[in-house]
Design a binder for these strands. Structure first.
Lengths: 145, 145
DNA sequence: GCCGAATCGCTAGACGGCTAACGTCTCCAG
DNA sequence: CTGGAGACGTTAGCCGTCTAGCGATTCGGC
């Protein structure tokens, strides 16, 4: 079993579980914070825009938005000028989560990186960036294999 | 948006997509290779054992096993001595995938780490290990927060 | 001015993952 | 020897994610 892939997978799962618990404390499900973040950055975006920003597909955003609308975090409204478009708008409840959720996220990053020196953190980021780029390249250009 | 968590998330997603494509080439779905790996290591394990080995819950293994049994990769059989237990046994088809799938996985690791020097790889592994340990600790002991 | 092509959101359905609840089987204490 | 506690697998139902296919709207070429 490949060393790095195995370790990365485990780390990924642990971080996922950690984030899940953290978000659950604020009444959110895993991943919904990302959708909210996209709206915090700019309210009234369309599902397609958000999907592109989050690197997920449009149906994922649509489903999530439906649940979050039910939960009262945002509202759906069609664009006035282009009736194909739908825009998602934060409710007060959705806006109110920004500060605590972002704080939680930063705290999580701090805790998780607590044992690393600044130098180690820099190397980790650099290495992960390379891995990310390599993976992305392989995804878009599976020509060699 | 926290730097490391963000980067790790993106990398995770890219690696996931890459693995998905790779496994799909062998007729597997994402994650099924892990279940198979557990059986390649030792055939006839129980869902509970496998779940513990893969760091997932038992229902996850049960569902996956049901689909894989339908796909002809393994068979379910109750334990002779303890009728509560169920043991999963590889079929020839499931066994036949070991060599190509493991090769694919190693190739993927190689491609993804291609741009890193041995030193960088070592540091990456060390740093990720620390992160993993920190995350695991926070999961089992959320006492400080 | 109209009709086809492109764009966009949505639904349907599959899969991996989790929690909660249930049913069955073992096994030990009394 | 019997009954309750514990251990297991399974089912049900949710969420995030993906691919495929549908419906509606807009826009450009003729």
């Amino acid at each position: 079993m490949p060393e790095f892939l195995d370790l990365h997978g485990k780390t990924s799962k642990a971080l996922r579980a950690l984030a899940d618990g953290a978000m659950r404390r604020h009444g959110l499900h895993l991943g919904q914070n990302h959708l909210l973040a996209a709206l915090w950055e700019q309210d009234g975006r369309t599902p397609g825009e958000i999907a592109a920003a989050l690197n997920v597909t449009t149906p994922t955003v649509v489903k999530m938005a439906t649940r979050m609308a039910t939960a009262g975090l945002l509202t759906r409204r069609r664009d006035d000028r282009d009736n194909r478009l739908v825009r998602l708008w934060l409710t007060d409840a959705g806006r109110a989560l920004q500060e605590p959720v972002e704080a939680e996220r930063w705290a999580m990053e701090d805790h998780v990186l607590a044992d690393l020196t600044p130098a180690e953190r820099a190397l980790l980021l650099a290495a992960l960036t390379k891995v990310h780029r390599a993976a992305t390249n392989l995804l878009t250009a599976p020509a060699d294999t």
